[in-house]
C-alpha cells in the first residue's frame, strides 16, 4: 500500500467513523453484552450476578413463555402464507396491462407506508365490536361480528388480518420480479397453447422463485418479531394473554419487571428459533428455487 493509499484509507475511515463508532457502540457491544447478561441475574440498576443457565432453565417452566411462543408461531404460520399468496396475487393482477394500473399500484402499496402506530389506532376503531367498520360490513351480510379485540378467540386473527392489509412491501418486490420475467417465455408458451394458469405455474412461479424465497425469509423473520401493533392495540397481551407475542413478553421482562437477564436469554432463544426456521426454509426450498444460469 502506497503512502497515498494509506492516507486515503485513513481519510475514508475517518469519514465513516461516526457509523463505525455507532455500529460498535450500539450494535456489536449490546449484542455481545446480551450474551453475558443472559447468564446473569440482571435488573439494569444493579450489577449483574452470574447465575449460569438459570434463566434458560426458568424458561422451560415458565408457562407464559410457552404461551407467548405459541402465540407468535400461530401468528407467523398463519399470517406469512396469507401475506405471501395474497401479495403475489395482487402483484400479478397489478402486472396486467390495464387502464389506471399505476393508480391501483399506489392504492395497494399505500397501507405499508402508514406508520404502524397510526395504522394500529385506525384498526382499533375498525375492529371495534360495536361501532367498527368491519362488523358493520359483516352486518350487511347478516353476520354478527365478534368482539375482535375483547374476545381471546379473535385477537390473533385480528392481528393477522391487519398484517395482510399491510403487505404492500411484499407486493412491490413481487411486482419488480414479475417485470423481469422475459416476455419471450410467455410468447413461446402461448405458441404451444398454454393457458394463463399453466403460464403462471410453469413460467412465472419458477422465474420469480428467488424473490418468493426472499419474501418468505424476510416475512418469517418479521412475523416472529412482531411487536408494535400488538403492543399498541393490546397492551399487555390482550384478554388472557391471547395476543402476548414473544417480543412483547421479552419487553415486559426487560422494562416492566426489570428482569433484563431473563429478557436477554429470551432474545437469544428467539435468535436461535429464527436461525433454525430460516435454515429449515432454505433447506426445504433449495430444489424449488431457480436461479438464472444454473
Amino acid at each position: 500500500m502506497t503512502r497515498g493509499e494509506k492516507r486515503n484509507l485513513r481519510l475514508g475511515l475517518a469519514f465513516i467513523s461516526p457509523w463505525i463508532v455507532g455500529f460498535l457502540a450500539f450494535t456489536v457491544f449490546p449484542v455481545c453484552a446480551s450474551i453475558y447478561y443472559s447468564f446473569c441475574d440482571y435488573d439494569v440498576l444493579t450489577k449483574p450476578v452470574w447465575v449460569g443457565a438459570l434463566n434458560y432453565r426458568d424458561m422451560i417452566t415458565d408457562t407464559v413463555f410457552w404461551k407467548s411462543l405459541y402465540n407468535t408461531l400461530y401468528y407467523a404460520f398463519l399470517s406469512l402464507p396469507f401475506c405471501l399468496v395474497i401479495a403475489l396475487w395482487i402483484a400479478v393482477m397489478l402486472n396486467q396491462d390495464v387502464k389506471g394500473r399505476s393508480v391501483f399500484r399506489t392504492i395497494y402499496f399505500l397501507p405499508s407506508l402508514v406508520p404502524v402506530v397510526a395504522s394500529s389506532m385506525v384498526w382499533l376503531w375498525i375492529l371495534n365490536g360495536n361501532f367498527g367498520l368491519l362488523n358493520h360490513a359483516l352486518e350487511l351480510l347478516h353476520i354478527k361480528g365478534p368482539q375482535w379485540l375483547a374476545d381471546e378467540k379473535w385477537t390473533k386473527p385480528s392481528l393477522i388480518l391487519m398484517a395482510i392489509w399491510s403487505c404492500g412491501n411484499t407486493m412491490v418486490i413481487y411486482l419488480a420480479a414479475l417485470q423481469d420475467v422475459p416476455r419471450s417465455l410467455y410468447e413461446s408458451a402461448e405458441i404451444d397453447g398454454a393457458n394463463p394458469w399453466v403460464k403462471f405455474r410453469h413460467i412465472t412461479v419458477p422465474m420469480i422463485s428467488p424473490v418468493i424465497y426472499f419474501n418468505l425469509i424476510m416475512g418469517l423473520i418479521g412475523s416472529l418479531q412482531v411487536f408494535a401493533q400488538a403492543y399498541i392495540m393490546l397492551g399487555g397481551g390482550g384478554p388472557n394473554r391471547s395476543a402476548l407475542f414473544y417480543t412483547v413478553y421479552l419487553y415486559q421482562n426487560a422494562f416492566d419487571y426489570q428482569q433484563m437477564g431473563y429478557a436477554c436469554a429470551m432474545a437469544w432463544i428467539l435468535f436461535l428459533i429464527i436461525l433454525a426456521l430460516t435454515w429449515l426454509a432454505t433447506r426445504s426450498t433449495r430444489r424449488l428455487i431457480y436461479y438464472g444460469g444454473e
Partner: peptide
C-alpha cells in the same frame, strides 16, 4: 353482553 357494552 358485557364485552359488547364495554366496546361502546
Amino acid at each position: 353482553n358485557r364485552r359488547s357494552f364495554g366496546a361502546s
